[in-house]
Design a protein around this nucleic acid. Structure first.
Length: 805
DNA sequence: GAACTTGCTGAATTG
DNA sequence: CAGCAAGTTC
């Protein structure tokens, strides 16, 4: 088969080893997607496997979409009648459940509703309220993520409750919310995202007949980004491969960046134990990036200890140096990026560019700068189309039309547009629904048929009105389903016949007009859906709306794409800007306390760098608005981990980079002196800073300082060049009793008063740092200090042993 | 019941 | 600086 000749030997092996378990360790840019797609086509064309016996699973729609397109392109000409199933974990599960969920016998029907995170939070909020908990103490979001984390660990409400330690009020409250939440989901015939996987696993575990059927169906299974699978996804794959063992997984441990979502890296590390006859193939040749870019990526990620180690190499030329820019503030950084894009465009108008940031909130300044420069851009993430309020409203109408017991959907739209059903009435409905233990829809029926008094005549009329709107929509939906009429007609009905469009038009504002346009866009989506063959009706359309996510708006040919590093995984661009490389931002401050999380941040930096094919820019700003407040920021330690000699400094004036370079030669000198045994006397002036050591405290301080002097990294002067992030060390000072008392000695306490934000301090262990924030006063004063190379630390002023610098 | 005002708290990454 | 929740006014 001639297309194999375009592959290198390990790639070819990965394609033709079709039988039995196979692990493909594929480094960044090593042609992973290519191998998967070729493998699928090879199975069909050379091994005569029926396409419908092949399943390929990905995490994102984007990846699935790309794979589908590439398979189609490669196999155009073979004229297959069926296509392989290339799907995300979630849509695979929806597919299975829509078919077989009744076999679980938990009361769920095939017309179950899918709750996305927003719906799920709403339901949790209601549960918190109904259990009488203070929603300030029990943040809805926090509870939602605790429950989701538990579910992904494989815990249900019962086992979560069983693990709560005695006296842990918060957890036991969460446990009760969890239980109620599950109960409500069931009453609403609804599944949240996690349930989609959980229920499928339960189904396969408990019902041998179903398990067997899917085992027979999916004879060859491929899993992409295997390092990101969690225990549930692992279980799912295990069950699906029980009978046959033709499982091929592809992944890269250096690109594991979803631990926070429960991804379990041991799935890939122990694959060979899970599937004893497994073969492993490593793809180590990178085709994407220049040598310099690859060197930068490698030199950052090698600072991680939790890794097997892999040598990625390339035959590509060294290429351009990495360009570095230190900006005055966030705006200046954005202007710099826009200017550079223009500059590149003048030489090469078609150079695709990506701007990668750590958090979505950073996108705004870049959008503004690009708009000012009249550069077209495409944004991935943030609020997606299907997350817009008006779109969600209409989707809720449609969900309700298919499942009137979906109380979340009902409560969402019962009074939008406003139809005279205010808080009073809604509270009444909620109360009764709870009392009677029936759905809100049934409660409404009880309230309007006259059998249940309690509502004002006005409210009853309004409620009847609403009831009619929904029953009409239900009729329209069912008749459309039976007559096979287009989905777009029903969508139009949901927009027009509910009075939604009219209410918007009556507003007569620009904003309302934009909303109308968005709804028009939804109708267009439905028309598109109708046009493609294989559409399965409204239900399928709505499932799509629920499972589609922001990263799916990625347009491959957009000239400039803005997105988070997470959403950039799997993509490549000739020109890449990694922005906001600052301590506390990237690496993110929430990762500061846990070394494992810092390693994940570092892998994320690795992912970001390896997106670049030819040009890579890295930048940071010296100050930035956070919470609407200007905050000083220090360069990211990851910058320090890049090979400084490969970097070209484009900053105006003296930058951190020029500093870092000087001090690294300085450091080398120190190192040489230390080797010659002169280290101890290297900087005597630092020991005798004009103080007389005349008290016990002062003498203790002398020994403390001398102790640091022995430790070269602690003795580093300004912009220290740190070899390795010392994330494991805890903020010191408190561990050193002597320092505590020394601080109360007259000499240093005079300086204690003015550690104000913006001033510099010197810490016995971390060296020079910048005070970012000061909270509290007196003995309890806490400082947030950023130490270049060590990250941000929270210190108790009294114990930290700080000096003014 | 709806529209408006104030005041508070809180953002990491995703299907 | 948001976005949201509770309070206030019409």
């Amino acid at each position: 088969m001639d297309f194999l000749s375009t592959l290198n030997p390990p790639q070819r092996e990965a394609v033709v080893e079709t039988e039995g378990p196979l692990l493909i360790l594929a480094g960044a840019g090593s042609g992973k997607t290519r191998v998967i797609t070729y493998r699928i086509v090879y199975l069909i064309a050379e091994r005569n496997v029926a396409p419908h016996n092949i399943l390929a699973v990905t995490f994102t729609n984007k990846a699935a979409q790309e794979m589908r397109e590439r398979v189609e392109k490669l196999s155009s000409g073979f004229g297959q009648r069926s296509a392989p199933l290339i799907s995300t974990f979630h849509s695979l599960c929806v597919r299975i459940l829509r078919q077989d969920i009744q076999a679980l016998q938990e009361g769920y029907t095939r017309s179950f509703t899918i709750y996305d995170q927003d719906d799920s939070v709403r339901l949790i909020k209601a549960c918190i309220k109904d259990l009488g908990y203070d929603d300030k103490q029990l943040g809805q979001r926090a509870v939602q993520s605790a429950i989701s984390a538990a579910k992904n660990r494989g815990d249900d409400a019962e086992s979560y409750a069983a693990h709560v330690e005695y006296g842990d009020e918060k957890r036991s409250a969460i446990a009760r919310v969890f239980r109620l939440y599950e109960e409500r989901l069931r009453n609403n015939n609804a599944l949240d995202f996690d349930d989609l996987i959980i229920k499928t696993v339960q189904l396969l575990r408990r019902v041998p007949e179903v398990r067997e059927r899917y085992n027979d169906k999916f004879k060859y299974i491929l899993v992409d980004e295997y390092q990101d699978t969690n225990s549930l996804q692992f279980a799912l794959i295990r069950f699906l491969t029980e009978k046959q063992q033709n499982i091929c997984v592809v992944g890269d441990e250096d690109q594991s960046v979803y631990k926070w979502r429960g991804a379990d890296i041991t799935n890939i590390l122990n694959f060979e134990q899970h599937y004893p006859n497994a073969k492993a193939i490593r793809l180590e040749q990178n085709y994407r990036s220049t040598q310099n870019i690859l060197d930068a990526a490698g030199s950052v990620v090698k600072n991680n200890t939790e890794r097997k180690g892999k040598t990625l190499w390339t035959a590509n030329p060294a290429g351009e140096s990495i360009r570095y820019y230190q900006a005055f503030d966030g705006d200046a950084e954005a202007r710099f990026v826009a200017a550079k894009i223009e500059e590149h465009r003048r030489v090469n108008p078609n150079l695709r560019a990506a701007i990668l940031y750590r958090t979505n909130a950073q996108s705004r300044v870049f959008e503004e700068a690009l708009r000012r420069s009249r550069i077209d851009y495409n944004i991935v993430g943030g609020f997606s189309f299907y997350e817009r309020a008006e779109v969600r409203d209409i989707v809720s109408y449609l969900k309700l039309a298919m499942n009137p017991h979906d109380s979340i959907a009902l409560m969402r739209i019962i009074n939008s547009p406003a139809r005279g059903l205010g808080k009073q009435t809604l509270d009444e409905i909620e109360r009764r629904a709870k009392d009677y233990a029936v759905s809100h829809w049934e409660t409404i029926a009880l309230l309007t048929d006259g059998s249940t008094p309690g509502l004002s005549p006005r409210a009853t009329t309004a409620l009847k009105n609403f009831q009619k709107i929904i029953t009409d929509l239900v009729t329209a939906t069912t008749s459309a389903a039976s007559s096979d009429s287009p989905v777009s007609d029903v969508v139009k009905a949901a927009i027009l016949d509910t009075g939604y469009a009219n209410a918007l038009k009556a507003e007569n504002t620009d904003e309302a007009e934009a909303r109308v346009e968005n709804l028009q866009e939804l109708v267009n989506a439905a028309v598109d859906y109708d046009a493609q063959d294989g559409g399965e009706g409204l239900r399928d359309f709505i499932d799509h709306a629920a499972l589609v996510s922001d990263s799916d708006q990625y347009k491959q040919d957009a000239p400039v794409t803005l997105m988070t590093v997470h959403s950039a995984k799997g993509l490549e661009f000739p020109l890449v800007f990694i922005v906001g490389l600052e301590d506390g931002l990237f690496p993110h401050s929430r990762s500061a306390t846990d070394p494992a999380e810092l390693e994940e941040e570092r892998r994320l930096a690795y992912v970001a760098i390896t997106r670049a094919e030819r040009f890579l820019y890295v930048s940071h700003a010296m100050k930035r608005r956070v919470y609407g407040e200007e905050m000083a920021s220090e360069p990211s330690q990851f910058l320090n981990e890049m090979p400084l000699e490969l970097m070209e400094d484009l900053s105006r004036g003296a930058s951190w980079l020029s500093f870092a370079r000087k001090s690294s030669t300085l450091e080398n000198k120190h190192a040489i002196r230390a080797l010659k045994g002169l280290g101890e006397n290297a900087r005597p002036e630092k020991i005798y800073t004009g103080k007389t050591y005349d008290s016990a405290d002062s003498i203790a301080e002398f020994f403390r300082k001398r102790g640091q002097q022995m430790n070269p990294s602690a003795a580093q002067p300004d912009p220290p060049v740190i070899r390795r992030a010392a994330a494991s060390s805890s903020p010191s000072g408190s561990s050193r009793p002597a320092s505590r008392s020394s601080n109360s000695s007259g000499a240093s306490s005079s300086a204690t008063g003015d550690f104000t934000p913006g001033s510099h301090v010197r810490h016995p262990k971390y060296g020079r740092g910048l005070v970012l924030r000061r909270e509290g006063t007196g003995d309890s004063a806490k400082l947030t200090v950023s130490f270049p190379g060590f990250g941000q630390k929270k210190l108790i002023e009294k114990y930290a042993g700080l000096e003014k610098a």
